[in-house]
Amino acid sequence: MWELGEHFRNHVEEYRDAVHEHFFNAVPESRQIFALSMRDTHTSLVPALAWVIEHTEPGKPLLADVSAKLTQLALDHRRHGFPAEVYSRFADALVAGLRVLALTQYQYNFSCDVINQICETMAEAARESDAAGEAPAHSAQVMAVEHPTRDTSIIRVEAGLAVPYQPGQHFPVTTQYLPGQWRMLTPAQPSDGTGQVVFHVTAAGAASRSLAHAQPGDWWTLGQPAGGISLPNAGAGELVIISYGTGWATARCAALAALSTGDRSQVQVPHIFAVTGSPGAHYDTYFQQNLESLGVPVRRIVREEKDPWLLNARELAAGSDYVVSGEPTDVVVNEVELSTGTPPRFLLIGPAEEVGEGKEGLIKRGVGKQQIDVLSWGRDGRWEPEDYATLA
């Protein structure tokens, strides 16, 4: 049903507004969980529904991978605090909104069937999670804030209980001054059972800028983590991580997780290339040197030799060298062995534009698409489901 999915995509705003009109009238308290601006409200709703429609055959149940994505989405949505029973109300709203799409009877019936399957799958996942006693979200207080550059903040938050997560997973994060808006942040160190989580935040976009300007004493809400990576076993080929900007936080977490295993013969320690616009944007060079002393190769690459005069960066650690290159993937390919033994795996982390450019550059230089995974986000910290990578 690709044509029907495309029809939904061509009428994103009309359909979304019709659904919300019905849902907000039926469940008035739901309005408070969304952004104040309707333009920023539930932006992924219609693309997600279109994707499910495109991957479902008429008269057949949802595919296993579709159900898996919906299950994860339901677990993510538990952070809003609604009971599983709300999905039946939302299904009614999704069906009511179909009136603006001018569907044929066959298309209408098929859409209703898919909508009901979606909401039943998500309601069941939410009920199972509730029954298992899994926390829908964590409340954490900002304990410390550093500003190594004008655009970057290192923020440590502390929850009352342990916050479990895996390397590379991201948390949906909001706070009282971001009503209805969530941004995805990845921790910069592995979960240690203390309830402390450290995030590196770039002030890009209004919502992310608000988080980057947090103050000690602020309270944040962290939803359940999603996505993640798995460090490959030793002997499975070199893992090369290319991080862009604060994508370094995920690379840092992966390196610490590999070092914490205690048995270097079992887990592959990654080879990291950290890419920034200028030298001062490498804001964590003291820690990078510590990693290098522990056997984690870290190569710093900058696109420009001079820092912008407004960057307000602190000094790099002594001996923190870097390579200047307008094409960072040239440096990577020149330094990574591609032609012998087991081919390396590449993981690209950072803003979608830079990650896309990096992936294209690797492919042009002979790296197979099957060797490349990505974790990327948009300008204001918004992630897309297809960007969740898991390395085998």
Results as ranks from 00 to 15, higher is better:
L256A: 05
Q268G: 01
A234N: 12
V269G: 03
S325I: 01
S230P: 02
Q215Y: 10
A249L: 10
A255R: 00
A254G: 07
V275Y: 02
L239Y: 00
I301K: 01
Q288H: 08
G262H: 09
V296S: 04
A251Y: 03
E238H: 09
G227L: 05
I229W: 03
R264A: 15
H282Y: 08
V240K: 01
R252K: 13
S230V: 11
H213P: 08
A234S: 13
L294D: 12
W220H: 05
V275T: 04
D263F: 05
T250D: 06
R303D: 11
S293W: 02
G280H: 03
E304Y: 12
P225F: 05
A254M: 13
T276W: 02
F273G: 00
R303H: 12
A258P: 03
R252S: 13
Y286T: 14
R299S: 10
V323I: 15
T276D: 07
D307Y: 07
T261R: 14
R303Q: 14
V240P: 06
P232W: 03
G228R: 04
G217V: 01
W309E: 14
A212L: 13
S278M: 05
L311N: 07
H213C: 15
K306R: 14
N290A: 14
P216Q: 11
C253I: 01
G245W: 02
P232T: 00
G223P: 08
A258R: 01
L294H: 12
H282M: 12
S243E: 01
G235F: 10
E238R: 13
F287M: 11
L291K: 01
A234F: 13
T250L: 13
S243H: 06
R303S: 13
A212W: 06
I272Y: 08
R303A: 13
G319D: 10
D218G: 07
A234L: 09
A313S: 15
A281L: 10
F287Q: 14
P270T: 09
D218E: 11
V324G: 05
S293Y: 02
C253W: 00
S293V: 10
G227P: 06
L316P: 00
L310E: 14
L316W: 02
D263G: 00
V296C: 04
A234K: 13
R314A: 13
V324R: 07
I301G: 02
T261E: 15
I241G: 01
P232H: 04
P232I: 02
G217A: 06
A214E: 07
L294W: 10
G235W: 11
A226M: 12
A234V: 10
W219I: 14
S320C: 14
Y244V: 03
N233D: 11
A251I: 05
W220D: 05
I229M: 09
C253M: 09
V240M: 04
A214G: 12
R300D: 03
F273S: 04
Y322V: 00
Q289L: 10
P297W: 00
S278C: 15
T276M: 09
W248A: 12
G237S: 08
T221G: 00
P225S: 12
S320K: 02
G319W: 08
H282Q: 14
D263I: 06
Y322Q: 09
